[in-house]
């Protein structure tokens, strides 16, 4: 069922990771991604993996839920793997079928590395969205991007847009589910037929979905105006963001992790 897609959904909880300042988590995600791209060898990947698994363990998010969130991304993963596997010509040839399908040692390593990188990248991002509610996520983002206001970047507006988008993902998924059921009840068939037929079968879903989304947007805009919403200028916050001891500890871990990966890389590992 569509609803089981958990992409970008918040998983309420009270673990130390849930309680971290959203800014800390955002910065850590960036640090983690940079480290992931600096990592060049099995050893540094192992270090990253240990870090990631420990973080998941602390977050008390059931690994099953993270795996389920991966499902829609399997195609991208397979695609990356296959591309790297067949189109890298590097090192000893492992398989050669009629000079057409050639798998080299280098290709195999690259494919595995790339897939591991994507998997760990996505898992890390999931950890952020699973442990941070959309509201505090955008709060954190806004605070981090605040300096850009000097350059006349509409930071508040952007973060508000993101907040609204995140908020409506589950709603839209639920709505899609409902509309699909209703059209199925009228005999619509989404599973069989040629590609064209299947594409056409989407119209009865997409039209009501878009109309519903526009209606919602309209209602939301009215509701915001009724409460005198007028953007970032002079707006105060109910929940002030503050770094605590745990955030400091987390930053420390982030620095150690980056340094470790850089050192490993300089040793050619």
């Amino acid at each position: 069922m569509l609803k089981d897609i958990t992409l970008g959904q918040y998983f309420p909880g009270n673990s130390p990771i849930h309680r971290l300042d959203p800014r800390t988590k955002l910065i850590m995600l960036v640090v983690y991604i940079v480290a992931l791209f600096l990592a060049k060898s099995w050893v540094s990947y192992a270090v990253m993996l240990v870090f990631l698994l420990t973080a998941i363990k602390i977050s008390t998010i059931p690994p099953k839920s993270i795996l389920r969130g991966m499902k829609p991304l399997v195609m991208i993963l397979v695609f990356t793997g296959v591309l790297n596997l067949f189109f890298t010509r590097d090192g000893r040839t492992l398989v050669n079928i009629a000079d057409f399908i050639i798998i080299t040692e280098g290709g195999l390593t690259r494919a595995v590395f790339m897939m591991a990188r994507i998997l760990m990248l996505i898992t890390g991002t999931f950890l952020l969205t699973y442990t941070t509610s959309p509201i505090s996520l955008t709060d954190g983002l806004e605070a981090l991007l605040n300096p850009l206001k000097k350059l006349h970047v509409p930071v508040h507006e952007l973060s508000m847009m993101m907040c609204i988008a995140l908020r409506f993902i589950p709603t839209l998924i639920e709505e899609t589910d409902k509309i699909m059921s209703a059209q199925k009840a009228r005999g619509a068939d989404f599973e069989n037929g040629s590609l064209m037929e299947r594409a056409r079968a989407l119209i009865p879903i997409l039209v009501p979905l878009f109309i519903g989304a526009f209606r919602r947007a309209d209602e939301l805009a009215t509701a915001m105006e009724c409460r005198c919403y007028q953007g970032g200028e002079g707006r105060t916050k109910m929940k002030l963001l503050r770094y605590r001891r745990n955030d400091m500890v987390t930053f420390g871990i982030g620095i150690v992790l980056t340094v470790l990966v850089i050192v490993l890389a300089s040793f050619g590992l």
Binding site: K178, A182, Q183, A185, P204, P208, G212
Partner: peptide, 11 residues
């Protein structure tokens, strides 16, 4: 089967 609020399924 006519769903709850079926008017949102017209297309």
């Amino acid at each position: 089967l006519v769903f709850q609020y079926p008017e949102y399924q017209l297309f």
